[in-house]
């Protein structure tokens, strides 16, 4: 519910960080600073040993976080103390959820103040058991669609998702890219009306974030660019980036889509 409510004040900026990077202790403070800088929702990544949907930046962050002692127990502790300035969303791989037990995982999300779950390697066809658990505990299960998702499947995913629909900006894995493709614009346009749309994968600059908002998205998701600044210890630049992105998307809202 908290996520849907947030989407009633779009455009939103969603920021991904890898919890536990650089240390579990640092994560709650980072969450609060990002929220103050303008993040509307924070995707809190649970690091996995084998992150097949992620590029080198987030892979490296996951390895650092695991080495720093992050695990699922610590993850929920961190989420609990991060506070409720903005809605938190879990992002992590299905095996980590499966290993804890689906019901227990969804309940732990609820109890630690996490409003939704994104599981990038869990397509809706395999998700019924987790979906049931999420419904039981009032947690949104957010599905992803990609530029190569065909129309009938996109309709199905749009119906199955709850909270919002995560649109993968382009094929490939996470990581900063230099432009936003026509593919992304087409995908945004293909989503049935009334479904909140957030676009991620490859968005690293305020211009790109503004671009996807102008193309009709309700939210822009930035991940690797932030993770990269955290890796370099440049937290002030991180806050500046988030601030700039937030301003850019606010300006972009309402303007006509740019046709290319």
């Amino acid at each position: 519910m908290r996520i849907l409510e947030a989407f009633s004040h779009s455009p939103l900026l969603i920021v991904y960080i890898c919890s536990g990077d650089p240390s579990p202790k640092a994560t709650p403070d980072l969450v609060r600073r990002l929220a103050r800088a303008g993040a509307d929702i924070i995707e809190l990544g649970l690091p996995h040993s084998d992150p097949i949907a992620d590029g080198p930046t987030i892979q490296a962050a996951a390895q650092r976080a695991i080495a720093a002692g992050m695990n699922t127990d610590v993850y929920f502790d961190v989420a609990s103390v991060a506070g409720d300035a903005v809605p938190l969303v879990f992002m992590g791989y299905y095996n980590m959820v499966y290993a804890r037990g689906l019901d227990r995982f969804a309940k732990d999300c609820k109890d630690s103040g996490i409003s939704g779950m994104i599981v990038p390697d869990l397509p809706p066809e395999e998700a019924s058991p987790l979906k049931d658990a999420c419904v039981r505990h009032g947690v949104d299960l957010i599905f992803l669609a990609a530029p190569n998702t065909p129309p009938a499947r996109l309709k199905m995913i749009s119906e199955e998702t709850s909270g919002f629909l995560y649109l993968v900006a382009r094929k490939g894995v996470t990581g900063a890219r230099s432009d936003v493709l026509q593919d992304t614009r087409d995908l945004i346009a293909r989503v049935p009306e009334g479904v909140p749309k957030a676009v991620g994968f490859g968005i690293s600059t305020p211009e790109q974030a503004a671009d996807v908002i102008r193309a009709g998205a309700d939210a822009a998701i930035v991940g690797s660019a932030c993770v990269d600044l955290i890796a370099k210890g440049e937290i002030e630049r991180l806050e500046r980036l988030v601030k700039d992105m937030k301003e850019a998307i606010a300006r972009a809202k309402g303007k006509a889509p740019i046709v290319c």
Partner: peptide, 9 residues
């Protein structure tokens, strides 16, 4: 078929 959406198709 536990893969990212891009690989499903």
């Amino acid at each position: 078929l536990f893969v990212p959406e891009t690989l499903v198709q």
